[in-house]
Simulated scan of single mutants.
Amino acid sequence: MPSAAVDDYLKTIYHHTEWQTAHITPSQLATELGLAPSTVTEMVQKLAAQGLVSHRPYGPIALTAEGEKRAAAIVRRHRLIETWLVREFAYAWDEVHDEAEVLEHTISDRLLEGISTRLGHPRFDPHGDAIPDAEGRVDRSAFVRLDEAAAGHTGQVLRVSDRDPALLRALEQAGIDVGHTVTVTAADAVRVDGGRELTLPDGAAAAVWLTA
C-alpha cells in the first residue's frame, strides 16, 4: 500500500476523535476522504491486518497504539508545516492546508525537526490544533464547541476548524480567531473581546472551540 494513502487514512481517523469522543464509522471515513465505501472497507481491513486499527464489521474504527503513533507523526508533520508557512512565508491561515497536504509526504525528518527548532517547537498550529511532540504527546485544554456552549459562557478561542477556507476568512474578519475571548450571547451571536455583539457566519458555531 502506498505510504501516503495509509497516512491519510490514519490522519483522518486521528483527527476525528481529537475534539469529540465518538469513534469514526466506515461511512464517515468514506465521506471524509471522498471515497467509495467499498474502497474504504477494503483499506480498513488492510490497516487492521497491519495492526494499525481495530475494527469489526459494521462497527466503528479505532487506532491501535501503533496506529496512534504513526498518525501522530504525520499530524505533527502537517501542522508544523502549516505553522511554518504562516510564520515564515506569510501564508494566510486559510491557504496552508492544501500546501501542507503535499509537503507532509515529501520533506525529510531532518528538515522537519529543523523547522520545529526554528519555530521554537510550537505546541499549536495556526488553527489552534495541537502539534504532537516527537513522541506523539499533545497538550490540550478542556474545551466546549461554541454551538454547545450555554448563553453567557465566556471562553478563549482554542481552535477553529480549517475545513472551509471561506468560513476561516469570515471568522478572521469578525475577529473570531485563536486567542481571542468570546462571550456567547445567543445561539448565533457572540461578543468578541468585550466588544459589540456579532452575528455568527453560517456554520461558524460548529467550527469554533472555546475553553470550557
Score class of each variant (00 low, 15 high):
131 I>V: 15
117 T>G: 01
95 E>P: 12
113 E>P: 01
132 P>E: 14
107 I>S: 03
141 S>N: 13
89 F>T: 13
100 A>V: 06
118 R>K: 15
159 R>K: 15
163 R>I: 05
78 H>G: 10
103 L>H: 09
162 D>R: 07
151 A>Q: 09
113 E>H: 10
148 E>F: 04
86 V>T: 13
184 V>C: 02
81 I>N: 07
164 D>R: 08
77 R>M: 04
95 E>D: 12
131 I>N: 02
191 R>Q: 12
116 S>L: 02
159 R>W: 11
179 G>W: 14
72 A>C: 01
113 E>C: 00
86 V>E: 06
126 P>N: 08
98 D>W: 02
70 R>G: 05
130 A>Q: 06
65 A>T: 13
186 A>N: 01
167 L>K: 05
101 E>D: 14
114 G>E: 05
121 H>N: 15
148 E>H: 12
151 A>E: 08
94 D>G: 12
165 P>Q: 02
128 G>A: 12
87 R>M: 11
132 P>Q: 15
132 P>K: 14
85 L>I: 12
71 A>W: 02
156 Q>G: 09
104 E>Q: 14
84 W>F: 08
82 E>C: 08
94 D>Y: 11
166 A>W: 08
80 L>Q: 03
74 I>D: 07
114 G>R: 09
99 E>G: 00
157 V>N: 04
121 H>A: 11
190 V>T: 02
84 W>S: 02
176 I>P: 15
185 T>R: 06
145 R>W: 06
102 V>R: 10
92 A>S: 15
69 K>C: 14
73 A>H: 01
80 L>I: 12
157 V>H: 00
93 W>R: 14
189 A>H: 04
166 A>P: 05
